[in-house]
Computed example of a mutant assay.
Amino acid sequence: MGFICWGITYKIYGGIQEWASTYPLFHWGPIAWSFYIALAVAFGFMLHVRGRNKQKFSEACRPILGNRIDGALGKGIDLIAIFALIAGTATTFSLATPLLSMAISSVFGLSNTVTLTIIILILIAVIYTFTVWFGMKGVSKLATYCTYLFFALLIYFLVGGGETRYILETGFSAIGNMIQNFIGLSTSMDSLRKTSFPQNWTIYYWAYWMVWCVATPFFIGKISKGRTIRNTVLGGYGWGLAGTFTSFIILGNYGLAQQLKHGLDVSGIIGNGATYSEAILKIFDTMPLPELGLILLVITMIAFYSTTFDSITMVVSSYSYKKLDVDKEPDRRIRVIWSVIFIMFPIALIFAENSMYSLQSVSIIAAFPIGIIVVLIIASFFKDAYNYLKSHKK
């Protein structure tokens, strides 16, 4: 009985802070990055060790499916991959672009309309198309600038917000809480549907990461030339976790401090019908020089959008070729065509005015077939690596 009372007390007084800071690290943490890195190793091995000249999702399945991937089966796999990538891209930017639009309208006093959102998307398209035109060098430079901008935004909140101690202490506790409860978090299904949180969010996040498995791991694998499997795993996994953990600990815990310490009812704002973007702008209003912070946010988001778009455009452009050596890049005209295609889907979803749960469904539907293909790729990699090691022992 005492244990039950302690549990109830913990949930009342410690639950919000503990779990609100823990779940972002879980949803964007070890399991999520495992999807990326396992596939990045498989793609890197396929391209740089085996020297395959087909930069396609289906090619990674060749060790198991054999020459069948040269026919209808392979085309089907690649079509599923492209559909999943489009679904992930459209979902991401349809959810995030309203924040960018609202930030710009707040700073410059413009009306926050659909027209403004479309203009912003077109501006992003121009930037990343220009970057893609110059190939991997352009992508690399933009990614570097994006990193500097994002760290500036993190420092702005960590130092300027006056909650440095709370942010770091809560983040440290959240890491420990996630490690301690990792198995439980990973297997929680809420069978009585008391909150449906695992169904609405955890499953959605796994689906979201899986649809992005089409592009991001391929990109990591492609730029991993000259690195060992150990380098790729430790480097990609370590820096990936470090980046996501740092961003959620600083930005998320600052917002949590405003909710729990200073009376800014962020959850109430959203519960009363406000959008997530409006709630985020309320948090920015608590910072010194909020207009400057919003300008930094706008520039950083545009850089992030452009970096993401140009990397996936480079990947999916390779799908347009029957054969393409790993050291060669797709033709510039092909890249521009895909750049235009990718910007059209977020615009279409914005016009559709989909709800959050509708957009989540897009990713979940696309992720189901991708999950099967991911398992097939991992099995193919182990088979191919085994045969490679076996042949080199002789």
Rank of each mutant, 00 (worst) to 15 (best):
F3M: 14
F3V: 12
F3G: 02
C5S: 10
C5H: 15
W6L: 07
W6C: 02
I8D: 08
T9E: 14
T9W: 15
T9F: 13
Y10P: 00
Y10H: 14
I12T: 14
I12Y: 15
I12S: 13
I12W: 15
G14C: 14
G14D: 12
G14I: 05
G15F: 13
I16K: 11
I16W: 13
I16P: 00
Q17Y: 08
Q17F: 09
W19R: 13
S21T: 06
S21Y: 03
T22S: 15
T22E: 02
T22F: 04
Y23C: 09
P24R: 06
L25N: 00
L25E: 00
H27Y: 08
H27T: 14
W28V: 06
W28K: 02
P30E: 00
P30Y: 06
A32R: 00
W33G: 09
S34Y: 06
Y36C: 03
Y36F: 13
I37Y: 01
I37S: 02
A38E: 00
L39N: 08
A40R: 01
F45I: 05
F45H: 05
M46S: 13
H48I: 12
H48D: 09
V49Q: 05
V49Y: 08
R50W: 08
G51W: 01
N53E: 15
N53W: 07
K54G: 07
K54W: 07
F57A: 08
E59Q: 13
A60W: 10
A60S: 13
C61W: 01
C61M: 13
C61N: 02
C61H: 03
P63T: 01
P63H: 01
I64R: 05
I64S: 07
L65P: 10
N67Q: 10
N67D: 12
R68S: 12
R68Y: 10
I69D: 08
I69S: 09
I69A: 10
I69Q: 09
D70C: 06
G71F: 11
A72Q: 12
A72Y: 11
G76A: 08
I77D: 04
D78K: 05
L79H: 09
I80V: 15
I80M: 14
I82K: 06
F83Y: 11
L85P: 00
I86K: 01
I86D: 00
T89M: 07
T89G: 14
L95E: 04
A96M: 11
A96F: 10
P98V: 11
P98I: 12
L99A: 10
S101P: 03
M102N: 02
A103I: 04
A103G: 03
S105N: 09
S106W: 11
V107A: 03
V107E: 01
G109I: 03
L110T: 02
S111Y: 03
S111E: 15
T113A: 06
V114K: 03
V114A: 07
T115S: 06
L116S: 05
L116A: 05
T117F: 00
T117S: 12
L121G: 02
I122E: 04
I122R: 03
I124S: 08
A125T: 13
A125D: 04
A125G: 10
I127S: 06
Y128P: 00
T131A: 15
V132R: 11
V132W: 08
V132F: 07
G135V: 07
G135D: 03
K137A: 15
G138F: 06
G138T: 12
K141S: 09
L142V: 12
T144S: 10
T144V: 14
T144M: 13
Y145D: 04
C146V: 07
C146H: 12
C146I: 04
C146P: 01
T147I: 12
T147A: 13
T147S: 11
